[in-house]
Write a protein that binds this DNA or RNA. Structure first.
Length: 570
RNA sequence: GCUCCAGUAGCUCAGUUGGAUAGAGCAACAGCCUUCUAAGCUGUGGGUCGGGCGUUCGAAUCGCUUCUGGGGCACCA
């Protein structure tokens, strides 16, 4: 499609006597929102000044002089816009042949050239159950990971587990005090979370408890064997529980190096900053100034111990050395925007310029409840485990009600239920806060995951009934596809690569989600208006089945990128 | 107080680098299953794009200002 834009730009240029830069023309060419206005459009308004003539006159003159070719079939002038219509036979053939040839590879590009990109995402805090916020993080991070993989990068997923810090001193204290009151044989994570909530409340009231917690953590840092064992226990049971969720979501990480991993790697941060003479004392703490518009970045607390920024900095150094990354992408809540601005500033003293430039923070909005913010202390947290179960049960119920004869109802209801959840958290702009609404989340009609999955299932069903197999699509007469429903769908299918690029550039999975809705909607219109299998014209039927098959490929590849499965039946 | 983000239909949201008549879904109402799966499709109603000023041939989009909501602002992560 981009080639066509170039062709149009040079066609316009040839009609002009004045000296105009081709890039100025190329950059102005746009795709009209309304299909009636052609495939490409060139507004002549800015030429009006240069040529000292009215836009309409200019447009008409260009139109007269323009030479039509294989690609362009028609040019029209409307209100000073030059509207170009492409030869749709060419367009349809090029797009569909491309999809059919590449198949599951359609959408894959080699822009990345195998370079490394590190994705820091999910990153739950040990000893707390996985909640909606983590879920949004995980789902966005995983999609971005896949998007960049699609571009040809070597993507590395890091689960930067929150497994270090004062909270473990507290948890150890809580465990010592309350462990006999609990049953640790199941739901360990909820037990630990409960203990944490209780001990936090206690520490807030009683300074002695907080002091004990601080001591505990210091002991843990110093290698107290008993505490280390406890810490390991907390970490293991938590990861086990998280893995269960990652497994359901199909998420895998290349590294689980959390905060504790960097415990012995922070000296170099302090040393380098000291050597460069940027570490300054301020109110007892050691800080680095990061400009007038931001408060300084604290690197050492006044008691001499490190802080999360120190660990983030150590991680940047480690990741630069280990992965030689082109980009390091951090997916976190938007409340950490300032923190990452500060950390990235300080990183300028620690890593080479090419690594500094690769640091990207991708913030996402809060997930809030109708009643306000989620708070573990107030018990208003939505556990993702429960939500997944709700979604699976709902899809199972629907499958049973519809009396579908399916082989594996467990698998299907999981694919559909989880798909609905994941899609729900990817479909809107990542920076927007989401107001959690259970009914809305468990809605399966309209612009939802199941709608897209359902569309995919329909494509599969037609393909099966048609009796065609892949190899039948070698010699097809694609120029028989001339209905507007067919052409619009094909053109949309042809946008896939561009959509992926845009999603990557903006770090915005919702662009792909929205695109898949568009595809599904166009296919459904086609499906309702044209009965693919009912024609006697075998060539036409085959061409249409090829279109149906291509649609299935794009939906499958697209859902794959978003981390959503494609059921075989529903 | 300073700073970042958001404000589009009753609700949830789209709206590429400024472009042509601001679009979907949900909800409401009216249709479409002896026809490739109705988790679908078609139609109707619904708008001061928070307000104001400006830049421009042209603004939901850019600038200034103001209102509303949310986040952040030093030893939590």
């Amino acid at each position: 499609m981009e080639d066509n834009k170039k062709i149009i730009a040079s066609c316009i240029l040839e009609t002009l006597d004045e000296n105009v830069d081709i890039n100025d023309i190329y950059n102005k060419i746009e795709v009209p929102k309304d299909k009636k206005n052609g495939d490409f459009s060139y507004p002549c308004f800015n030429l009006a000044k240069i040529l000292k003539n009215s836009p309409v006159n200019i447009a008409n003159k260009i139109k007269e002089k323009i030479v039509l070719n294989d690609a362009i079939s028609k040019v029209e002038v409307v209100n000073g816009f030059l509207n170009f219509y492409l030869n749709s036979n060419n367009v349809v053939e090029n797009i569909l042949k491309n999809i059919l040839t590449k198949n599951s590879e359609y959408g894959k590009m080699n822009i990345g050239n195998g370079k490394n990109i590190v994705f820091d995402y999910s990153s739950p805090n040990i000893a707390k159950p996985f909640h909606l916020g983590h879920f949004r993080n995980t789902v966005i991070g995983h999609a971005l990971y896949n998007i960049y993989k699609e571009l040809g990068y070597n993507t590395i997923g890091i689960n930067y587990i929150g497994d270090w810090g004062r909270q473990f001193g507290l948890l150890i204290e809580g465990y010592k005090l309350f462990k006999d009151e609990y049953d640790f044989s199941n739901n360990v994570l909820e037990v630990l979370s409960d203990i944490y909530v209780r001990i936090s409340a206690l520490a807030k009231e009683d300074e002695n408890v907080m002091n004990k917690a601080r001591e505990n953590f210091k002991e843990l840092e110093n290698g107290n064997e008993e505490y280390y064992k406890l810490w390991k226990f907390f970490r293991e049971v938590s990861l086990k529980e998280y893995d269960r969720i990652y497994d359901i979501l199909g998420v895998k990480f290349d590294s689980y190096n959390g905060e504790a991993f960097y415990n012995d790697k922070m000296d170099v941060v302090i040393d380098t900053l000291t050597k460069k003479n940027v570490l300054k004392e301020s109110r007892g703490a050691k800080v680095v100034e990061v400009g007038d518009n931001m408060p300084p970045c604290i690197v050492l607390k006044s008691n001499g111990s490190t802080i999360y920024a120190t660990r983030d900095l150590a991680a940047i150094i480690y990741r630069a050395k280990t992965y030689d990354f082109e980009k390091a992408i951090y997916v976190t809540g938007s409340e950490q925007i300032l923190h990452f601005k500060q950390v990235f500033e300080v990183a300028k003293y620690l890593v080479e310029e090419k690594y500094q430039k690769g640091l990207v923070h991708v913030p996402y909005g809060l997930v809030r409840l109708k009643t306000g913010r989620m708070s573990s202390r107030e018990g208003t947290v939505i556990y993702i485990k429960d939500l997944i179960n709700d979604a699976i049960n709902k899809s199972k119920e629907i499958l049973i009600n519809k009396n579908k004869e399916v082989e594996d109802i467990e698998l299907l209801s999981k694919q559909i239920g989880v798909g609905a959840l994941v899609f729900n958290y990817l479909k809107s702009n990542k920076l927007k806060d989401i107001l959690f609404d259970l009914d809305e989340t468990l809605r399966f009609d309209g612009e939802t995951g199941p709608y897209i999955q359902y569309t995919y299932v329909r494509t599969k069903s037609i393909l099966e009934k048609s009796g065609y197999v892949e190899s039948d699509f070698e010699n097809i007469k694609l120029d028989l596809l001339t209905n507007s429903e067919e052409i619009e769908l094909v053109k949309k299918l042809g946008e896939f690569e561009n959509i992926i690029k845009r999603a990557a550039q903006d770090f915005e999975p919702s662009i792909i989600a929205k695109y898949l809705i568009d595809i599904s909607s166009l296919f459904s219109k086609f499906y309702n208006n044209i009965k693919v299998l009912e024609t006697n014209n075998e060539d036409l039927k085959k061409a249409r089945v090829a279109l149906v098959y291509s649609t299935g490929i794009v939906i499958k590849n697209g859902l794959n990128i978003l981390g959503i499965e494609t059921p075989s039946k529903m």
